[in-house]
Write a protein that binds this DNA or RNA. Sequence first.
DNA 1: AACCACGGCAACCGCCAATAT
DNA 2: CATATTGGCGGTTGCCGTGGT
Length: 265
Amino acid sequence: MAMPMPPFKTVPMEEDGELRRGPWTLEEDTLLIHYITRHGEGRWNLLAKSAGLKRTGKSCRLRWLNYLKPDIKRGNLTPQEQLLILELHSKWGNRWSKIAQHLPGRTDNEIKNYWRTRVQKQARQLNVGSSEGFVEAARCFWMPKLLQKVEQTCSFNGMSSQSCMDPSSSTIKNHSSENSSDFTNISEQTELTSPSAYDHTQIVEESCNIGYDMEGFALESISAAGFYEETNWISSEMTDALWNIDEMMFRELEEIGINIHNFKP
DNA sequence: AACCACGGCAACCGCCAATAT
DNA sequence: CATATTGGCGGTTGCCGTGGT
């Protein structure tokens, strides 16, 4: 990730010189990677000094966990991952690290950024003023649409949704979980076990031109159908109708172990 | 071509809990 | 037990790229 050296801000350091801040350079990344490869993680303040980095331990830890760690996934979140985030957030709220534990290779920072930039933007566009309205939007628009994306992804690949997300399939690993909540099933099913599995998902995703994608069913689709209202933007009748439309898809997901009851109106 | 506005995201900040001394 | 240090987390900031005018 070579980039021009920015005019670094520095903060005073008691002893030798100053602490660097701002974007990491390639040289710093290399130092950190090599040090951790040899000595492992932990004791971040000591690590920073020992590695010759003029950074705080916190900064080193953050850089490693959010960017340099080998198993970090880059690129757009898949529809499956977006679906999982919506569901887990409805359960746990802004517990980003907890949510991230169920999305292998994704960091809490990435999920947090996704939520703030994509999901909350959509909420604004839908003029969802209340948390209840937000949940409703997630239930009635985002979830079905994401499920549709999942379907498309699977069918494009010549797979049924069952095999696409089947824990016993070759690309998905089923593993025991520390708790038995309704949500662990999904996270298990979306855990990718090998780089090839991940690459495969990426290829399919790019081919279908999907990724961060909730724009298509935003304000225009609602207002065009005459559904949008300033104060009570979605009627119960519409909720029922939309739900019926997606019922089959939801049933299919339930069959493969995804619990979507929390999103039913 | 220049400027501006906006979105995405890496990095920082502050707080708190856990651990070490 | 008290204090200091470290690590982890969620919230926030600010830089940079991009698209629009």
